[in-house]
Design a protein around this nucleic acid. Sequence first.
DNA 1: TGATAATCTGACGTTGACGTAAAGATGAGA
DNA 2: TCTCATCTTTACGTCAACGTCAGATTATCA
Lengths: 139, 139
Amino acid sequence: MTLRIGEVAERSGVTPRTIRYYEELGLLPRTVREQGKHRVYTEVDVERLSELKRLRDLLGLSLEELRSMITAEDVRAEIRRRFHETESRDEQLALLDEALPHVETQLALVRRRLAALQELEAELAERRRRIQRRRRDLA
Amino acid sequence: MTLRIGEVAERSGVTPRTIRYYEELGLLPRTVREQGKHRVYTEVDVERLSELKRLRDLLGLSLEELRSMITAEDVRAEIRRRFHETESRDEQLALLDEALPHVETQLALVRRRLAALQELEAELAERRRRIQRRRRDLA
DNA sequence: TGATAATCTGACGTTGACGTAAAGATGAGA
DNA sequence: TCTCATCTTTACGTCAACGTCAGATTATCA
């Protein structure tokens, strides 16, 4: 099933303008305009866009930073493609060795942010405990 | 010990311009310019600014959102002040009941973000595991 | 006290991430 | 085939969050 820009926008929670802008920046592929002039998408695009939105909103990454991450994503996809095409065990190993760092980069980024947030959470929880303890002591 | 704007900027990792801008927005108090015309700060200001930066960077809050949070902070401080001035147990209890929601609001915000980030982390970790498993299976 | 560094107040500039408006083209249903 | 809703490109607008520059003022220290 093929989708149009409005549909994709609604499903991923952005506007058509944003989609065109992301395409312009290279965050989304320039869609092949089959037999017409309107952009045509699939579910894959919806997922990709949702993923972009998630990284943007959760990590506060700039679109430029997203672009380098997505480039890494594409490299990963390319690696998988080549992986399934080759028969040589040695080459498969080499490709996996190539794929790993990309995921680890993203993972490291998320984990740093997680650690910082957990620290903040701990401090706030401590504040709350103090207030609650004082309430108990008064009652 | 009193600090000047450059010192405060360096310690909290922002620029003097940012400090003046935050003051203009009401994120930082308009400093009393003791006997001169230069702004004068203390360690408390450094901490407040660092806290603002942390919320901005970790949660991606806008300065407007920060302002309402900080207003809540001020309310909390005011509550504490009044708390220590009163003798009435009933009033103290009431003040604590007032203070609690402010902390809980912030805590809830941080925890929602934490949950979302943990979900993302889990997905990335799973990806990594798959790659590693395939490597093992090949070796 | 005089030089040098830091700060002051405007005020205009910049950049990212879109919003919006116009004028025309396209496509699915009656 | 007509008719709308949706899409197209182009281009200018906007808003937050500062950056930067000028020219005057203030603080520090030899």
